[in-house]
Design a protein around this nucleic acid. Structure first.
Lengths: 155, 155
DNA sequence: AATAAATAGTCAGTGTCCTGATTAATGGGT
DNA sequence: ACCCATTAATCAGGACACTGACTATTTATT
């Protein structure tokens, strides 16, 4: 019986947390637009005309995934994609009016959902929640390119 | 500019956390066996002969997903699936010898990975990390079947 | 025993998410 | 101007994860 208790496995916890979020998102925000899709819309509200790769970087998606997400948003006519005349490799992205409307609507619902989602935690605990998750994620991502972020004990 | 700061969105954080974990898992544990697959193996070490649905419940996967994961484990010959003679709907699951070996091997690596993953947090912070994530996840899942868990303000 | 409700599993469809290989365009070095 | 490394995007392939519809079996009801 060398079985492990999964509740002490951060990977398992992370997966459950995302599933819980997905559930709440579907019921309280939208069944059409997903959370990553909203993140893309949100990024383009803040910085219109960004290229695909940079949007992916902002929301934390690799080139392949961001391409799929964007193609779905274009199919729904929430987004426009135009070749950059300055750089023929890039596509520049802009929200359509419908995209802006959708973003506004979902922003309100998302705020409500986050309140419910974080409801079980006190305000202080919510800060800790953000801080801990962010520190763990940042550290793990830092291990990806050890040369860039770290400055000590270079092997 | 009604754009939102994604770092205060638990859904975004949850996704990043899982991505970070996925990255570390791939480099430190296995490129063949995934974290959910390991969770299934682990469950069947603790409780051999469980049926598919119950395994899914233990590791937090719905019937469709657990079916796919299990079919992959069977294809890799880490698992056996036999009809329950008592109940013709069920399949009973058992690890093969190879499955047990794989579980033992990955258990060691997983422990190492978890140490690295949680490295940025003190022991006290790690407890808080587990507690907060679990409370949020449990609460959100509780909203799924309101009749069962909750006892107040029934609409 | 026939019917109905519940349950286990499958299947179709959609949407993340990743890696690795490929294509097209840019820009530096010679 | 030509070669080459870099970079943006696509494509193929695989894995998770959900919902909703379906099949087969069991169990409860009548």
């Amino acid at each position: 019986m060398a079985a492990v208790d999964l509740t002490t496995h951060p990977g398992h916890l992370a997966r459950r947390l995302q599933q819980a979020h997905h559930l709440l998102w579907n019921t309280m925000v939208s069944e059409e637009i997903t959370s990553p899709q909203f993140a893309v819309l949100n990024t383009l509200v803040a910085e219109p005309g960004l290229d695909q790769r940079t949007v992916g970087e902002r929301v934390g998606l690799d080139r392949s995934t961001i391409a799929e997400v964007i193609s779905r948003l274009i199919r729904r006519e929430l987004l426009d994609k135009v070749r950059d005349p300055q750089d023929g490799r890039r596509y520049l992205l802009h929200l359509t009016d419908e995209g802006k409307r959708t973003h506004r609507k979902l922003t309100v619902r998302t705020a409500r959902m986050n309140q419910v989602f974080l409801g079980p935690l006190s305000a202080a605990e919510q800060s800790v929640f953000f801080d801990l998750i962010q520190r763990v994620s940042d550290a793990a991502e830092g291990l990806r390119n050890p040369a860039e972020a770290v400055g000590a004990a270079g092997g």
